[in-house]
Structures are given as structure tokens and as C-alpha cells.
């Protein structure tokens, strides 16, 4: 296998980890000769120091600093270290990668991303219409911009209710006062609108997949989170095969011709109904679960981005257990000094 160089973001393997380390592990398992380039936003991201996994790391400018600086940085990496493909894993940077995918391709930096239109489907305001098209339900959701709207929406959905930002943050509230507090908190941090959503009772199930952009896919993995942290992040999980959720995922890639990685979060009610809660247009932080269960989705996505035909089998075993654990190591302060002063190490 060749020595391809692949950039991966989200190497912040902390208590709320990004997916980058899981992606890097998956790529190395598929091709031990592959060189992983870590794209960090902070010198303290643990991936920067995990030299056995991430061969070279660079500090990136924040996407909010503009696309030019961002693209220039990638081109600098290409010129100085070499770069064949990039796998972005963070929501905030995806719009730039999507917008400039062709330009990066012109510079021989491959990617396999959803289109702009597909990316917009992740908006929680569109959950209802997406759910309807893929044959499942969505919790009643109202988009509100003021207290009057908030009160009306809460009357419709009752308590407890979810108060959510359009893309980030979600709180379960039990009283109007609590709802107002969370409404203000979301507005202060993320702006308008705020979403008020019905709470659906049932099992939370997740599915990760890679759409081929033509209505098919390069594999799915369906899981249940068994144990989560206080931040709601998976600590242990198990592979499952929920026919209704899998059929919804098949409809999703077919209906929207989804291209690239995605994660669906659903609630499976005791009555056997599936409700769509969230669509993420990227790999989840637990993506290594798929690799460990025999469906190396990051490697398949990389193959697709390089124009190769990835395998499509995904006959994983049900009942495989995922265990996340804390680990630590000691390294040299010089690494921190170099990434801080030169922006690369």
C-alpha cells in the first residue's frame, strides 16, 4: 500500500472528544503506511502529542477567520509536508470544506463530502420534512424567537420539553422559568432561533454510515449507547440491528443521495415507532466502533475520496461491545513549544 498522507481534524481527544483520533486509528488499521496529518485548533489538543498515531500536526486558523486563511493553510501543508486527502470531522469547519472542495481537488487534495444542499438538511428546523421523506416520525418542533413564541410552543409540547439551539446545545426543561433561562442562555451564545421540541420517550439509538452520493452506501453501523458521561458522550455501547432504523437510513441515503459520512440519532419507542432526533453530516466521535466491528467506514470514505471503489459489505456482528477508556502518557515539553511557536510539530 502506498504512503498516502491524510489530514484529519477533531484530534481533541478530551472528555467531549472529536472524531479525529478514531478516524486516524481506522486509517492506520487499513493502511499502516498512511501518514496522518492532525489539524488542530489548539496546541493542547491531545492528538498533537500522539505521535504513534498522528505523524505530523498543524495548528489551523479558526473557520471564522475566513476561508482564505484556512485554504492557504491547507495549501501550505500540501507544499511542505504533502497532502492527498482531508477528512474534516467538525461541524463548524464543514461549510468551508464543502464550499472549497473543488478548489482543493484542483490542488490534488481529495475529500468526500455532502453537497451544500445536503449539509442544510442537518438543520433541526428541517427534521420534520426529512423524517417524513424517509418514512419515520420527528418530535413536534417549534422555532421560536421571543417569549410569546416560547410560551405558545411549550403549551403545544407540554413538559418536560427540549429547548435547543439550531445546531448546538440541548436542555430538558420541566418548568416555564427553566425554559426561559435556557432560552436566554442559547440566545446569548448562539443567537436566534431557539427550538422547542417535544420529548419522545424510548430508547436512543444511533447509526453511522457513508453515503455514496448516488443513493447507495458503503456500510452502516447501528448501535445503542449503554453508558454515557455527564456530557452525554458514549462510554460503552453495543452493536444492534434495528430493522426500522436501518430501513430509515437506507431511505435517507437513497432519497437525498447523501454523499459522505453521516450519523442519525433516533428514538425507538416502546410502540415500535422511530423518531428522528438529529442528523450529523460527519462521523461521530465513536466512529472507531464501526472499524472495530469490521466495517472500517473512515477507510471506505478515504477510498471513495481517492476515486477508488470501497467495499460495501456491512454484515457486522450484533452484540459487539464498545468500551471507551481514559489513558495517559508522558512526552517532551519541546513538542508543546514547537506547536505553540511554529504552529506545527
Amino acid at each position: 500500500m502506498s504512503e498516502i498522507k491524510v489530514a484529519v481534524s477533531g484530534i481533541n481527544a478530551v472528555d467531549n472528544p472529536g472524531p479525529g483520533v478514531g478516524v486516524a486509528k481506522s486509517i492506520k488499521e487499513w493502511n499502516p503506511k498512511a501518514k496522518i496529518v492532525g489539524l488542530a485548533y489548539d496546541p493542547m489538543e491531545p492528538g498533537v502529542y500522539m505521535k504513534w498515531l498522528i505523524d505530523k500536526s498543524y495548528l489551523m486558523p479558526y473557520p471564522s477567520q475566513g476561508a482564505d486563511a484556512f485554504i492557504q493553510r491547507l495549501l501550505y501543508i500540501k507544499e511542505n509536508y504533502g497532502l492527498d486527502a482531508v477528512i474534516p470531522t467538525l461541524d463548524a469547519e464543514l461549510p468551508i470544506y464543502i464550499e472549497y472542495a473543488q478548489r482543493l481537488k484542483d490542488f490534488q487534495i481529495a475529500s468526500f463530502l455532502p453537497t451544500k444542499e445536503q449539509f442544510r438538511l442537518r438543520s433541526k428546523e428541517r427534521l420534520n420534512s426529512v423524517a417524513q421523506k424517509i418514512g419515520i416520525k420527528a418530535p413536534k418542533t417549534f422555532s421560536v424567537i421571543d417569549y410569546a413564541g416560547l410560551r405558545d410552543a411549550l403549551k403545544e409540547v407540554g413538559y418536560p420539553a427540549m429547548v435547543k439551539g439550531l445546531f448546538y446545545k440541548a436542555y430538558k426543561v420541566y418548568t416555564y422559568e427553566e425554559a426561559v433561562e435556557k432560552f436566554n442562555e442559547i440566545v446569548a451564545q448562539w443567537g436566534y432561533p431557539v427550538l422547542v421540541q417535544e420529548v419522545v420517550k424510548g430508547e436512543e439509538l444511533n447509526l453511522v454510515g457513508v453515503g455514496d452520493g448516488e443513493g447507495g452506501h458503503f456500510g452502516f453501523l447501528n448501535i445503542k449507547k449503554l453508558w454515557i458521561t455527564q456530557l452525554g458522550k458514549i462510554w460503552t455501547g453495543v452493536t444492534i440491528r434495528n430493522p426500522k432504523m436501518i430501513s430509515a437510513a437506507e431511505n435517507f441515503v437513497r432519497e437525498f443521495k447523501w454523499r459522505g459520512a453521516f450519523e442519525l440519532e433516533c428514538i425507538y419507542t416502546p410502540e415500535g415507532e422511530v423518531y428522528l432526533i438529529e442528523i450529523n453530516p460527519r462521523f461521530p466521535a465513536w466512529v472507531y466502533f464501526a472499524t472495530g466491528a469490521g466495517v472500517n467506514l473512515p477507510a471506505r470514505l478515504l477510498m471513495a475520496s481517492l476515486g477508488e471503489e470501497p467495499p460495501r459489505d456491512w454484515d457486522y456482528e450484533v452484540g459487539k461491545l464498545y468500551v471507551r477508556f481514559s489513558d495517559d502518557f508522558v512526552t517532551d515539553m519541546g513538542l508543546f513549544q514547537r506547536i505553540s511557536t511554529y504552529g506545527e510539530v
Binding site: 430508547e203 439509538l205 455501547g237 453495543v238 450484533v318 452484540g319
Partner: peptide, 9 residues
């Protein structure tokens, strides 16, 4: 006992 559709045991 393990339920393959919900992950409950």
C-alpha cells in the same frame, strides 16, 4: 438475554 433491536440486556 440480549435484545438485538434495542441493545437492552
Amino acid at each position: 438475554a440480549f435484545d438485538p433491536e434495542t441493545g437492552n440486556s
